[in-house]
Amino acid sequence: MNISGFEYFSPRSVEEASQLLLEKGKGAFVMAGGTDLLIKIRRKLLKPAVIIGLKGIPGLDKISFNRKQGLTIGATALLSDVAHHPKILRHFPAIAYAAKSTANTQIRNMGTVAGNLCNAAPSADNAPTLLAMGAEVILAGTQGERRLPLDQFFIGPGQTAIEPGEILTAIFVPTPPPHSGVSYQWISARGKVDISAVGVGVMVTMKGKVCSSAKIALGAVAPTPMRARKAEKILSGKVLSSRMIEKAALEASREAKPISDVRASAEYRKQMVAVLTGRALSEARQRAAKG
């Protein structure tokens, strides 16, 4: 590995980390699991002067759940922690599933959900579900803390709304309203372990047979994970029939703006947005009926 020539810090608190980040300026990067960061360094896409490890900060890996408020995932909680957390499995199965769909066992034992979001890859497996569920990120800087809807977090490929000196400390997911169902669907060319070629996360909230609200988020089909707002509108206030699901799925496919790359062609990705949106909506409808 050609990884040399940087200073490494392991701060003991968020304040200390954020202070360091400001102090060291442009060449400083925070690191959670390092499964994205180290690879970028190896490929010479980044040449950090300073790396600030977050895993030494006590309590930053905390996962807490409170039925009234919701779920909080600490910044250094591992993907595997999230994938296997009993409460998440019970109350947020789609979030656990998305974490479990990320990479492979070894990577999940190092990488974090927060790192997955901060890395801001269009294909980030954890983004669509969290977007559909209206998650917020909690950002802390030397000036204090702010909360930002995940919707406003992604700016471009690899770019987020994090300001200099800020650190994402936790992800907050509100408990969905009653009669809601959430689903994450993804595919890739290499069966069971792979970066997604397309991912779709949806949440529907039902009032009887009528869909009172639908949120649809798409991964890997635009420069950032995106909401399919027109498709959402089609469903809002309508009976969630199979025909309506199909209609919304096609609309989502129209909204997607994928590129062609070695993982899939744009045309195939568009087609798959329709298939996966349909499947996600159907599963979410089923889950809503149970919940």
Partner: peptide, 16 residues
């Protein structure tokens, strides 16, 4: 050659 890592050069994994 466009796919020069095992991320994009897809040999089947053990699970496949």
């Amino acid at each position: 050659t466009l796919n020069t890592t095992f991320l994009d050069y897809k040999i089947p994994s053990a699970l496949d």
